[in-house]
Design a protein around this nucleic acid. Structure first.
Lengths: 195, 195
DNA sequence: CCTACCGATCGGTAGG
DNA sequence: CCTACCGATCGGTAGG
């Protein structure tokens, strides 16, 4: 048990280091020796934790963060609130996951193309499912006349774009909390820029 | 003259192929042999056109598209129109440059980190200047009470995010023209989603 | 634009 | 977790 816990911690530690390097340099430009150096071991030793090598580390990062997005949206879907409120909560939940996992999110968003064929297919299917949850919230809002009759696909794409690039700019030591940021984005989205 | 033109065409042809590969696979994951194969020559021959090698191709792509953004925003700044109209035109101009250079734009947006130290500095300075043009338009709109008193930095970041991820979704054979897309985005931004 | 080649580094394995 | 090592491939150069 103790050794299992220790192994899990070690594996997590390696993943944390890997996702930081993947974020800063990109997946392809980061070598196993590069990761091993930061951990303080030899490259060959990484294969004790990730027997399928580099791609397994990437898959670990991507699917771990994907499951966090899933859990967050599931909580939101349970709420018995109007589409407007629900969209705000979904946005908040999404931004929170990103803000709490800045390195992993960046990898998730930019490096998933490097997954191997099998994982890539699985990844795309999961992402589609997640996007569909957002689509449904917006559709309900349009049906109930809370939202304008916008192109749902177009709107959600813009929404994801704006949300997903926040990490590029967000500084954990800034004055705005994740909630503040999600709130600002949400109100701008609802009411627009026009005075 | 003829040989110069031919050389320019050839160089442009190589760059077009390179930016397509960089977009699809990423800069680090694309080899010189990879590019050469697509062109139909040997890797060593690429160095006749880009004597500083792979990074020079990347720099060419990034700075060419940067200058297109500059030219576009300069035209917009010359207009004697309200901040509202000017923001719409700036948005339209930006989206148009992306739509007309889908491959190059993707490289410009995602792969600039791989520029070497000198080019990286130059690139960041240019980008900052471009962003400042957008900031100024929004600031004028706020001063003139056309826009809400939003956080300019925050707003522009969301705006760029939404604009820049369009290429991820835009299909040249789709029913929406670049102008349609820019218009939709602009009206959503001004008036919001709320019915 | 080519052939021929360089040293460096890659992801990964064998075996302990 | 290590040493030792593999074949493959990398960006780039020499010389024509």
């Amino acid at each position: 048990m103790n050794s299992n816990t220790a192994n899990t911690d070690r594996k997590t530690h390696i993943r944390n280091i890997a996702q930081n390097l993947f974020r800063k340099q990109g997946y392809a430009a980061t070598s196993m020796r590069n990761i091993a150096d930061e951990v303080g071991i030899k490259a060959a030793s990484l294969y004790n934790h990730f027997k399928n090598g580099k791609e397994e580390i990437l898959a670990d990062i991507c699917f771990d963060i994907a499951s966090q997005f899933f859990e967050a949206i599931e909580e939101v879907k349970k709420m018995e609130v109007s589409p407007t409120v629900m969209l705000g909560e979904a946005l908040k939940a999404h931004v929170k996951v990103i803000m709490k996992n800045l390195d992993a999110s960046a990898v998730f968003l930019h490096e998933w193309r490097s997954l191997d064929a099998e994982n890539l297919q699985k990844f795309k299917a999961q992402r589609k499912r997640y996007e569909r949850d957002f689509h449904q919230i917006v559709e309900k809002g349009i049906e109930g006349k809370e939202f304008k009759n916008v192109d749902v696909h177009f709107f959600c794409l813009g929404l994801f774009s704006a949300m997903n690039w926040l990490y590029d700019w967000y500084r954990p030591d800034g004055k705005l909390s994740p909630d503040d940021i999600a709130d600002q984005l949400f109100h701008l989205l609802l009411d627009g820029l026009k005075a």
